[in-house]
Nucleic acid binder design. Structure first.
Lengths: 122, 122
DNA sequence: CAGTATCCAAAGGGATACTG
DNA sequence: CAGTATCCCTTTGGATACTG
């Protein structure tokens, strides 16, 4: 392999790791997706969308995403208060990735989960 | 919001969660990326590419990816033996996502990491 | 509603050493 | 080279209860 190509690959690996520092974990992508699909989303809505997450975890993950400027948090002056989460421009640039992951998930279900369901494994 | 749209969003959320069941964690995407960028990759090469991973973790993660039919494992008859990992067709369909994540990582560095480096925080 | 606080079990994962 | 095995500390995260 050419040396130039090799250098390029190393740069790419670094970029991937930068992305994953922000997005890794069981929940982050699902949370971002919830906000992305609905455009605006409240705390309890996300809690419902993301199957299995606890309020403690959701709270923690949302803070991290806010720190990384992926989402914004807005307190609405209702009674009781409501908090709305939205994607920043930076967060919105993840939309393509989310759409691709959605398509891949459907394909994956056909490829793996589907075939094991036929065998009654799940 | 329309009821149809709402149903569609729930389907999408399920698909995202199917994807994340396979891809979540600190290392999976980086491992797949390493194999993807280089086309074929040996155990020790991946160990070098993915900064910070231990051989124990790499071994575990590779097994899971093989189980999920994302990669294949081929033992080459060299002395000492070499093991080559490659993406399956199913795994190759992640290429677009990997390219997008690479671009996003570069943008993210400019957006967040870059600005804190200017302040000498890191 | 949108979180926080606390307890605590389970899993994650690093370091090191070892094997075919 | 490509892993496995073991030790053991750290982090994760569920359950439950509580607050403004």
């Amino acid at each position: 392999m050419e040396e130039n190509q090799c250098l390029q690959n190393k740069k790419n690996m670094m970029a991937i790791q930068d992305s994953m520092d922000v997005l890794y974990g069981k929940w982050k992508i699902s949370i971002i997706s919830s906000i992305c699909f609905y455009n605006k989303r409240r705390f309890s809505d996300i809690l419902n969308d993301v199957v299995g997450i606890s309020n403690k975890m959701l709270s923690k993950e949302l803070k991290e995403l806010e720190t990384n400027k992926v989402i914004t948090r807005t307190v609405l002056d209702t009674h009781p208060i409501t908090v709305q989460y939205q994607l920043t421009e930076h967060g919105k640039s993840l939309q393509t990735i989310i759409n691709n992951l959605t398509d891949w998930g459907i394909k994956h279900r056909l490829e793996i989960i589907g075939s094991s369901e036929l065998l009654n494994i799940n």
